[in-house]
Simulated assay, not measured.
Amino acid sequence: MYRLTIQYRTPADPEAFDTRYFEQHVPLCRPLPGLRAASFSKPRILGDGTAPYLVAEFDFDDAVALKSALRSPEMAVVAKDAEALPAERVMFTAEIVGG
Score class of each variant (00 low, 15 high):
Tyr2Val: 13
Tyr2Thr: 12
Tyr2Met: 15
Arg3Glu: 14
Thr5Phe: 01
Thr5Met: 11
Thr5Val: 14
Ile6Asn: 11
Ile6Trp: 06
Gln7His: 11
Tyr8Asn: 05
Tyr8Gln: 04
Tyr8Glu: 04
Thr10His: 10
Thr10Leu: 09
Pro11Gln: 01
Pro11Glu: 01
Pro11Lys: 02
Ala12Ser: 10
Asp13Ser: 07
Asp13Cys: 03
Asp13Leu: 01
Pro14Met: 04
Pro14Phe: 03
Phe17Ile: 03
Phe17Arg: 05
Asp18Pro: 01
Asp18Phe: 00
Asp18Ile: 01
Asp18Gly: 00
Thr19Leu: 09
Arg20Val: 02
Arg20Leu: 12
Arg20Trp: 00
Tyr21Gln: 07
Tyr21Met: 08
Phe22Glu: 13
Phe22Gly: 07
Gln24Gly: 00
His25Asn: 01
His25Ile: 00
Val26Met: 11
Pro27Gly: 07
Pro27Leu: 03
Pro27Lys: 02
Pro27Ala: 04
Leu28Lys: 14
Leu28Pro: 11
Leu28Val: 08
Leu28Ser: 08
Cys29Leu: 06
Cys29Phe: 01
Cys29Asp: 01
Arg30Asn: 09
Arg30Ile: 15
Arg30Phe: 07
Pro31Glu: 04
Leu32Ala: 10
Leu32Ile: 07
Pro33Lys: 06
Gly34Gln: 06
Gly34Val: 05
Leu35Cys: 11
Leu35Asn: 12
Leu35Lys: 12
Leu35Asp: 11
Leu35Pro: 13
Arg36Tyr: 00
Ala37Trp: 11
Ser39His: 09
Ser39Gln: 10
Phe40Cys: 07
Phe40Lys: 01
Phe40Trp: 09
Ser41Val: 05
Pro43Trp: 01
Pro43Leu: 03
Pro43Asn: 04
Arg44Ser: 07
Arg44Lys: 07
Arg44Met: 04
Arg44Cys: 03
Ile45Asn: 10
Ile45Gln: 15
Gly47Lys: 01
Asp48Lys: 09
Gly49Val: 02
Gly49Tyr: 00
Ala51Gly: 10
Pro52Glu: 05
Pro52Met: 05
Tyr53Glu: 04
Leu54Lys: 13
Leu54Cys: 13
Val55His: 06
Glu57His: 06
Phe58Trp: 12
Phe58Met: 15
Asp59Ala: 13
Phe60Met: 13
Phe60Arg: 14
Asp62Ser: 05
Asp62Phe: 09
Asp62Lys: 12
Asp62Ala: 05
Ala63Phe: 02
Val64Asp: 14
Ala65Lys: 08
Ala65Glu: 10
Ala65Gln: 09
Leu66Arg: 13
Ala69Pro: 13
Ala69Cys: 10
Leu70Trp: 09
Arg71Val: 01
Arg71Asp: 15
Arg71Gln: 14
Arg71His: 10
Ser72Glu: 09
Ser72Pro: 07
Met75Gln: 14
Val77Gly: 01
Val77Arg: 13
Val78Gly: 08
Val78Leu: 05
Val78Phe: 02
Ala79Ile: 05
Lys80Pro: 00
Asp81Gly: 00
Asp81Phe: 00
Asp81Gln: 04
Ala82Ser: 10
Glu83Ala: 15
Ala84Cys: 01
Leu85Thr: 05
Ala87Leu: 05
Glu88Lys: 04
Glu88Ser: 08
Arg89Asp: 02
Met91Cys: 13
Met91Arg: 14
Met91Lys: 13
Met91Trp: 07
Phe92Thr: 10
Thr93Lys: 06
Ala94Glu: 14
Glu95Leu: 10
Glu95Phe: 04
Glu95Lys: 15
Val97Asn: 13
Val97Arg: 15
Val97Ile: 11
Val97Ala: 14
Gly99Glu: 08
Gly99Gln: 08
Gly99Ser: 11
